[in-house]
């Protein structure tokens, strides 16, 4: 089954990269993304890029945006381009296809995030050389590896469910973008309208919090939600159902 998953993931990644007309233009797009996230942004921030605790949040959002593109193209796009039924008529199991597609979107988003992340470290050290090569704090780096991975998995699972109900890849992309906007805008609005008193109370609460424990707790919650959404996707991703849809 793992071999089958990788076969699907490989094909989906090829399709995504060639979606801009050719592999060349697809790779150019990837280079631009890596250039912006791995060179331009760290250059403008300097060494603070490696020490600011909010940086992991930046890295967690960036791969999610990439995942949305792949997951919608992979699920809704495959149906829209009339290739899904042929795939379902092959020897591959429903689960291999489902997990192959999730793997492709996670590899794409998380992988690009990780590559950009490492290039950012080199960029900062080259642009602003210190006495020795500077890297993230090990715990921050662990968070940089784990949170984007969980976030990609989460968005990928949501993407599967949205794509299964969307008539086209574009419609699925728009729906997922709205979900993303809601996730970003709602906390911002709450923050703006909550008032000074509530903000102060929240600051007090966070002052006493052990961030390692909080991180582990949040990661576990995301993991449970991921598991539930993947289970839900497995229930929805059934041959007979997909054929009739």
């Amino acid at each position: 089954m793992i071999n089958d998953i990788l076969i699907i993931a490989r094909k989906d990644l090829k399709e995504v990269i060639s979606s801009r007309g050719s592999y060349r233009s697809g790779l150019m797009y990837l280079l631009i993304v890596i250039g912006v996230m791995g060179i331009m942004m760290p250059l403008s921030s300097g060494r603070i890029w490696l020490t600011e605790p909010l940086i992991p949040l930046v890295w967690a959002w960036f791969p999610i945006l990439l995942v949305i593109n792949v997951v919608t193209d992979s699920f809704a796009g495959e149906r829209e381009r009339n290739t899904l039924e042929t795939l379902l008529a092959s020897r591959l199991s429903d689960r291999s296809i489902l997990f192959g597609k999730i793997t492709a979107s996670v590899i794409y988003g998380w992988g690009l995030g990780m590559i950009s992340n490492l290039i950012a470290v080199i960029t900062v050290n080259v642009a602003d050389p210190g006495p020795k090569f500077q890297f993230y704090d090990p715990l921050v780096y662990l968070a940089l590896v784990i949170f984007p991975l969980l976030a990609c998995l989460l968005m990928s699972s949501v993407g599967v469910l949205v794509s299964l109900n969307a008539p086209t890849a574009r419609a699925a992309y728009q729906k997922l973008s709205l979900v993303m906007l809601a996730v970003i805008i709602i906390p911002t609005l709450i923050g703006n309208f909550a008032g000074e008193k509530i903000a102060q109370q929240l600051t007090l609460i966070f002052k006493g919090v052990n961030f390692i424990q909080l991180g582990i707790g949040v990661a576990l919650v995301i993991l449970v939600v991921d598991g539930f959404l993947i289970w839900l996707a497995m229930q929805r991703f059934k041959r007979a159902r997909l054929i009739l849809e």
Partner: peptide, 27 residues
């Protein structure tokens, strides 16, 4: 079995070789 259904089921962004290579791997 092999099946050519209502639509060709070809991945039009890929080359002919890549299409066959993918299904070769699938099988």
């Amino acid at each position: 079995c092999g099946a050519l259904l209502e639509h060709t089921g070809l991945y039009e962004r890929l080359t002919a070789l890549e299409n066959l290579d993918f299904y070769g791997r699938v099988w």
